[in-house]
């Protein structure tokens, strides 16, 4: 069973790529009682180590950064010009409430000169701006500096079995990883890594993998979906269970890794589905290619409307993911090439 307040706290913490301090603190408070040692490396990866006896190391990794907007200019009237931090669609980012790390609130809108009111469909990121209620550059600069980052200021919506919020990519997986660490039964050394800067090119996890040198890595991240009206075809469905990664745009998982996870799911009667994602990369890739290669796979939680403020997930998939992760690390025999 899941702990909704924990999920909510992790999902709503501030933490765009490169500015993960707040979400690090939140996650740290949850994992500290569950493991032997918690460290933060030079890049900011939060690494929770739970000692084992087998001599084998398993790295579990979920990125904790989220997409955002970075302030690139402040004009004389106090409007903030922005650029994207990670995969922000300008259209989706227009007309949204946002917040900064220091609590400053604002709203985004777009230049209407050419596109007209209420029609951001042709808006480029350079035509977006943030209105923080300031009348002048001086007034704006008192609250926000160049280089500060904003994230969607969103509500945590409960919709029956499903939840909706910004930053479910990838905080829902951070929460799943914390959940899995509770009373985790395993004979292996577990390194639970909450990685940084995934959204700007899977930058953090590689350094952590290099430092750890794991025998197996399981990456938790979100995947896309194929079950909304007239969407691109894809076999993954919300509520279809833990999605076992076969391939994404950045990585092809070794067959012995995904069949290991499938065998575990089958043995424990955990709902699962296969995940082939044509677009989007994950930390799995950089871990797989760390040092002289790592057997790396992934469990994905399907999330609708990824990179929008209304990312939507099914808590049954969350529970299946936690269960699969816990059952996988319990195995003595790990996949080998």
């Amino acid at each position: 069973m899941y702990e909704k307040t924990m999920i909510q706290k992790i999902v709503t913490a501030y933490g765009p790529s490169g500015r993960e301090q707040e979400v690090t603190d939140v996650i740290r408070s949850f994992v500290e009682p569950l493991v032997d040692e918690v460290t933060v490396d030079a890049l900011g990866n939060l690494i929770a180590h739970k000692k084992g006896t087998s001599g084998k190391k398993i790295m579990l990794v979920a990125h904790m950064d989220q997409i955002g907007l970075v302030v690139t200019d402040i004009d004389e009237k106090g409007f903030l010009r922005v650029s994207n931090v990670g995969g922000v669609h300008p259209v989706t980012a227009a007309a949204r409430p946002v917040r900064f790390e220091n609590g400053t609130r604002g709203v985004t809108y777009f230049e209407t000169e050419n596109s007209g009111f209420m029609n951001p469909s042709k808006t480029a990121i350079t035509q977006l701006f943030i209105d923080i209620g300031a009348d002048s550059r001086e007034e704006a600069e008192a609250k926000v500096q160049l280089g500060d980052m904003a994230v969607y200021d969103v509500n945590f919506l409960e919709m029956g079995r499903r939840i909706s919020c910004g930053a479910l990519d990838n905080r829902i997986c951070c929460a799943a990883l914390v959940e899995a660490l509770k009373d985790m039964e395993t004979e292996h050394d577990i390194y639970a890594v909450f990685s940084v800067q995934e959204e700007v090119g899977t930058r953090g996890a590689g350094a952590a993998a290099y430092a750890i040198g794991p025998d197996l890595c399981i990456n938790l991240d979100v995947t896309l979906f194929g079950d909304t009206p007239k969407c691109m075809p894809m076999a993954v469905k919300l509520g279809g269970g833990a999605a076992i990664k076969i391939m994404d745009a950045s990585v092809i998982v070794a067959p012995m890794v995904y069949t290991f996870l499938e065998d575990v799911a089958k043995a424990e009667d955990i709902a699962c589905q296969r995940d082939v994602m044509r677009m989007g990369g994950t930390d799995t890739s950089v871990v797989q290619r760390s040092r002289d290669g790592v057997l790396a796979g992934g469990i994905s939680i399907p999330v609708r409307y990824v990179h929008s403020p209304v990312e939507t997930a099914d808590l049954r998939d969350y529970e299946a993911t936690v269960a699969l992760l816990r059952a996988a690390v319990k195995r003595s025999e790990l996949p080998q090439r």
Partner: peptide, 17 residues
């Protein structure tokens, strides 16, 4: 290529590897 989706009628959708 890779099998990406399977249609109800059994046709197989593929994506580029």
């Amino acid at each position: 290529l890779m099998v990406y989706d399977i249609e109800e009628g059994g046709l197989v959708r593929i994506c580029n590897v």
